[in-house]
Every structure is written in structure tokens, then in C-alpha cells.
């Protein structure tokens, strides 16, 4: 009955333009909020690496695409559900992140920014094209029973896959926060992030801490990739789009802030979702990037950022 009501209200407005149907708006907020969990997970790994090393990881999206393919391999070859397999993907990306940091990033930590950008873009290109050779060009999507399911709260529907991803995103953000603020290694990371030289003076192994930070960041990307593989179609060139979205979120939330990345992800997703209701959906990305411009004008360090960049 509620659905019938909603259709009656929708018939009144024009086919394009402003639609003021409360059910549609509530649905957009719920969908946006839950999908925000995906965005948050994507952005957390990026912000951690930047926070500690001040290195902008342009290979972020491509690492995530690899994690998606790992989840896909796990699901199609070994029958591992991505909602379990994300732990494995995180572990593999942890090791990969450690190696990338030690072998490549460590050499350019103190180099000018353009050198860092070139290196990370190079890594991104290699990752994208090896994925193309290894997995082919077809877009893929992992099928799991969870993403087939939906719960209806009256006229509003809740995608179970997104709900689980959202809850895992909250759990991972909390775990990461506890790690950073309650463990010795986490404190060392924050010390390096605050003042690398000072941390070195008081006996912190900055090289090791940086490598672990990169590895933890990559592990977050790994978990994020595996968890969104059932929600987002992916193919080798998807990486760039994921990187851009993640940068946007991290800048809105505040570079280097884990909480900022989490909240930023939710804000961007809800903004896009509402944009798709109130504007033409093909303009929804305009909303999130307009938000970016506003944040840069009003609060250049981001919502939770402490220093200007």
C-alpha cells in the first residue's frame, strides 16, 4: 500500500527535475549511507599512508582493483565468500604493501613531490596492465548470497550486502583507531606522522614504522577491495576512478585523519545519492565535487584535518 502511495506522489512532478517524494528521499539517504561504508573503507587506507609518510599513493585504486580480483579468484576458484575472504586479501595486500614501501617508496620519501607522484603513477600503470594480462578486460562482479538479499522496511529497501559492508567498515575504523591510539606501534606511527625527525631522535625506527604503516594502509585497501567486489563491477582500468573518489573523500574528511575518511565517505555517498534524486542522476558526481570545492574554500584542511596542506 505504501508503494502505491509513493507512486501516486511521483506521478505529479515532471519526468526530469525536482522530485519531492519522501519515500524516495528516505530510500536515497539509506542507500547512500550504506554505500558510504564502501567509500569510507576505500578512503581509510589512503589517508593512513598519507598521514604517516606524506606520500600520496596514486596506486591506491589499482591496489584496490587487485584486491577485488583476489576476492574474485577466491570466490570463483576456491568458493570463498568475499565477506570471509577479505581477511585473506587484507593479509596479501599487507605483505605487498610492506614490500612496495621497502623496495620503492622508501627511496623517494624525502624526494620532491613530483618524483613521488611519478613513482606511484608508474606502480599504478604496472598494476593495471598486469591485471589486464592476468584477468582479461571483461568487467567482473563477485556473486555472493548476501548481495542477492534485500530486507524491506515498509517501502524502503535495505541491501544486505551493503549493510554488512557498512558494519564491517565501522568495525575496521574502530579497530584502526584503537590500534593507532592504544598500541605502542600505533603511537609510534602517530609520532612519525607528527614529526618524523623528532620520532627518530627519541629512538623510533622510522623506516620500519613507515613500512608497517604503508602495509596497514594497503591491508585496509585489501579489505575494502574484497568487501566491495560484490557491490561494484570492476575491470583493470577501474583503479583510476577509485583513486579519484578516494582522494575526494580524504580531502573532504581531512588528509591524514582516519575518522575524517570515515565520515567523509558517508557524506560524499549521501550527497551523491541525494543528488541523484533532486537533480538528473548523471549530475550526481557534480554534487560530490562541488562539495570538495566548498570544503577547500571554507575549511581547506578538511572537516577533521588539523593542518593545512
Amino acid at each position: 500500500m505504501a508503494e502505491g502511495l509513493c507512486a501516486e506522489q511521483v506521478r505529479l512532478p515532471a519526468t526530469q527535475g525536482l522530485i519531492l517524494d519522501p519515500v524516495l528521499v528516505v530510500q536515497a539517504v539509506v542507500s547512500g549511507l550504506l554505500f558510504g561504508g564502501v567509500y569510507s573503507l576505500m578512503a581509510i587506507g589512503l589517508t593512513l599512508i598519507f598521514g604517516v609518510m606524506r606520500v600520496v599513493n596514486f596506486a591506491h585504486g589499482d591496489l584496490m582493483v587487485w584486491a577485488m580480483y583476489l576476492a574474485w579468484l577466491g570466490a570463483t576458484r576456491f568458493g570463498v565468500d568475499p565477506y570471509v575472504g577479505f581477511v585473506g586479501a587484507a593479509a596479501i595486500l599487507f605483505v605487498a604493501g610492506f614490500v612496495i614501501q621497502r623496495q620503492l617508496v622508501d627511496r623517494i620519501v624525502d624526494a620532491p613531490h613530483e618524483m613521488q607522484i611519478l613513482l606511484m603513477l608508474g606502480v599504478a600503470l604496472v598494476l593495471e596492465n598486469t591485471a589486464l594480462v592476468a584477468f582479461g578486460p571483461e568487467p567482473q562482479r563477485v556473486r555472493t548470497p548476501l548481495t542477492q538479499a534485500a530486507v524491506w522496511l515498509g517501502p524502503v529497501f535495505v541491501d544486505v550486502g551493503r549493510l554488512v559492508t557498512f558494519l564491517v567498515a565501522i568495525a575496521l575504523t574502530a579497530a584502526l583507531w584503537l590500534f593507532l591510539y592504544r598500541s605502542d606501534l600505533g603511537r609510534q606511527m602517530r609520532a612519525v606522522a607528527d614529526n618524523g625527525y623528532g620520532a627518530h631522535v627519541i629512538g623510533t625506527d622510522v623506516r620500519h614504522v613507515s613500512a608497517v604503516a604503508f602495509a596497514v594502509g594497503a591491508a585496509c585497501v585489501g579489505a575494502a577491495g574484497a568487501l566491495v567486489a560484490p557491490l561494484l563491477p570492476f575491470q583493470p582500468p577501474t583503479g583510476l576512478q577509485l583513486s579519484v573518489t578516494s582522494f575526494n573523500i580524504v580531502i573532504i574528511g581531512g588528509m591524514g585523519s582516519v575518522l575524517g575518511a570515515f565520515v567523509g565517505g558517508l557524506i560524499v555517498s549521501v550527497a551523491e545519492s541525494l543528488g541523484a534524486v533532486f537533480l538528473n542522476p548523471s549530475m550526481k558526481e557534480l554534487v560530490s565535487f562541488a562539495l570538495l570545492v566548498v570544503i577547500l574554500l571554507v575549511r581547506p584542511a578538511g572537516i577533521f584535518g588539523r593542518r593545512a596542506i
Binding site: C6, A7, V10, R11, T15, I19, D21, V23, L24, Q27, A28, S31, G32, F35, D159, L232, Q241, T245, S269, E272, S273, A276, V277, P281, K284
Partner: peptide
């Protein structure tokens, strides 16, 4: 990256 709101809009148009 997401088409859930687009589909909700389509559904609302019966």
C-alpha cells in the same frame, strides 16, 4: 559506482 537511487527513481515511475 552505484545505481540504487537511479533504480529507486525508475521504480517510482511505475
Amino acid at each position: 559506482s552505484d545505481l540504487s537511487t537511479e533504480v529507486s527513481r525508475a521504480k517510482a515511475a511505475k
